[in-house]
Design a protein around this nucleic acid. Sequence first.
DNA 1: ATATACCATACTAAAATAGTCAAGTTTATA
DNA 2: TATAAACTTGACTATTTTAGTATGGTATAT
Lengths: 141, 141
Amino acid sequence: MKLSTKGRYAVMALADIAKFDGDSPVSLRDISLRQGISLLYLEQIFSMLKKNQIVTSVRGSNGGYKLTKSPEQIKISNIFSAVQENIKTVGCKKESKKGCNGKSAKCITHNLWDELELHINEFFNKKNLSDLIKGKNENRV
Amino acid sequence: MKLSTKGRYAVMALADIAKFDGDSPVSLRDISLRQGISLLYLEQIFSMLKKNQIVTSVRGSNGGYKLTKSPEQIKISNIFSAVQENIKTVGCKKESKKGCNGKSAKCITHNLWDELELHINEFFNKKNLSDLIKGKNENRV
DNA sequence: ATATACCATACTAAAATAGTCAAGTTTATA
DNA sequence: TATAAACTTGACTATTTTAGTATGGTATAT
Ligand code: FES
Ligand code: FES
């Protein structure tokens, strides 16, 4: 089990915007250069972030992206669900009565994975963008 | 991010053994039938569980597998690391000085993923097999 | 005008996953 | 002692997911 780059890059890029935020929007080109992420890949990611109102865009020369809210208000969970990289521990559908192995009842491990999912989502709900750009992270790229 | 079947099946199968534990060992054939997991896949998984002393095997007719310890003593984290399905949130090497994007420093999100990994491992350290076979799970398959 | 930067869709190589297949060895028991 | 049940090992493969590229736009500041 590992985190996908899509989710990680989304957070990384938004943290970059939060850090270099000013009057003018931040361009994907700058983020690409600073964070070492492919520009084309960033475009794909930001398309989703925009659709989900995490960022707004300014087109044209000197354009770029801005956060829709303050970094404190943007939770990691918001970002992950925007790029559709949700934590999905259980293989079985939540609404379905069927279990993960096609049986009629939920399996013996079902509650465990459900609890884990809750646990992780709690973590992502507690953390926001501003947590990343303050304190001991200050000197990070 | 999702859990692999290998890790989930390992826990499921061991919970099955814990539940049907008696004098005689539990055969993979029985587990396969009860839990709806491919027998051949189970064999692969149990090979690893045996190598890591989670189970012992009894060969021959009427053979099978037994837990090496009581269900209370077998933590989910033990099982996951035995089948090499460890949680690995960060893309970058722990010991390396380099970041996930090839840069010389750790990236701005590094601490976050590290914390998450710790968080998840804590959960898996707290949970053991006996948690699965008691209480509200009793009526589960 | 034109360069910069966002926007959208389609495509693809590589890696990981979720198994299967083949060919054994061991041992209880009929 | 024949036989079937069950463990053991290693290689193999189809499918899916991931992590991007590629192409061809549109909008706008200068
Ligand atoms: S994980 Fe939900 S039924 Fe098995
Ligand atoms: S996750 Fe470790 S440096 Fe980016």
